[in-house]
Write a protein that binds this DNA or RNA. Structure first.
Ligand SMILES: [Mn+2]
Length: 232
DNA sequence: GCGCCGA
DNA sequence: TCGGCGCAACGCTTA
DNA sequence: TAAGCG
């Protein structure tokens, strides 16, 4: 007998840690965020990966994606830095066009990353521009989504062709998975183009590839014609 | 996850 | 002391 | 024009 039927509700496991001189309390470390994966393990993962992750997050206003009840539970977003945010967490006040002021969290250091992991922030999506120049993205993203019966493999083929096209334009690109079956192809750019310009660039290149491989790509097609194709 | 608010 | 609640917002698609 | 989806 295991005798170990510890319930979630009885998980009072806590630990104070010091990260680069910042004291923070980790809570409910035994909470299962995925089947078989605890919050402690999520925090450990982000601690170990922090050197690789932080350069991408730095200077980008955060939208938190919080999953306090685990990946299958209710989740919610948060932009405004909560009242209980530690004072050493950097904030970025920004007034949107509608006049609403939001104090965004900036995650540029390890203590902030660990603090967010403890809040059960599972995902860290990034904005495409940085606060030094919000109007001009430093990343351009091609979003590749295969529509059934097209597969992840089809998306990969398209990504390779796209990479070659970008290379011919003198642009380096990097690929990452996105969601269950999609890909993102990222192109770092000097922050001197507007979002309108980069959006137009992506659409034009999509159109160009579409004319090159019309059987594979779904650009500018009605929804029902997208089946079996990849949409950029 | 956490603080707030009303019961 | 406890349970409920709020915590973002945008383009595309369809009705 | 609005509601629903991702
Ligand atoms: Mn996608």
């Amino acid at each position: 007998m295991s005798g170990c039927t510890a319930k979630q509700s009885t998980d009072t496991s806590e630990r104070w840690v010091e990260v680069e001189g910042r004291r923070l309390k980790l809570t409910r470390l035994e909470k299962q965020l995925w089947p078989g994966i605890t919050k402690a393990e999520l925090i450990k993962y982000y601690a170990e990966m922090s050197d690789f992750i932080l350069p991408y997050l730095r200077s980008r206003p955060m939208t938190l994606h919080l999953y306090p009840d685990g990946i299958e539970g209710k989740h919610f977003f948060r932009k405004e830095a909560p009242e209980f945010t530690p004072d050493w967490v950097r904030r970025f006040p920004y007034r949107a066009e509608d006049g609403k002021l939001i104090n965004y969290i900036l995650c540029g250091d390890r203590p902030t990353l660990i603090w967010l992991a403890n809040l059960a922030n599972i995902e860290f999506p990034i904005t495409l521009s940085r606060i030094e120049d919000l109007e001009h993205p430093d990343l351009v993203v091609f979003d590749l989504d295969p529509f059934q019966p097209a597969t992840f493999r089809d998306a990969c083929m398209v990504a390779l062709v796209l990479r070659d096209g970008l290379r011919q334009l003198g642009l380096q690109s990097w690929v990452k998975t996105s969601g269950a079956t999609g890909l993102h192809v990222l192109v770092p750019v000097a922050p001197k183009y507007t979002f309108q310009q980069t959006r137009e660039f992506v659409r034009r290149l999509g159109k160009m590839l579409e004319s090159l491989m019309p059987e594979v790509l779904a650009e500018f097609r009605p929804v029902e014609e997208r089946k079996g194709r990849v949409l950029i």
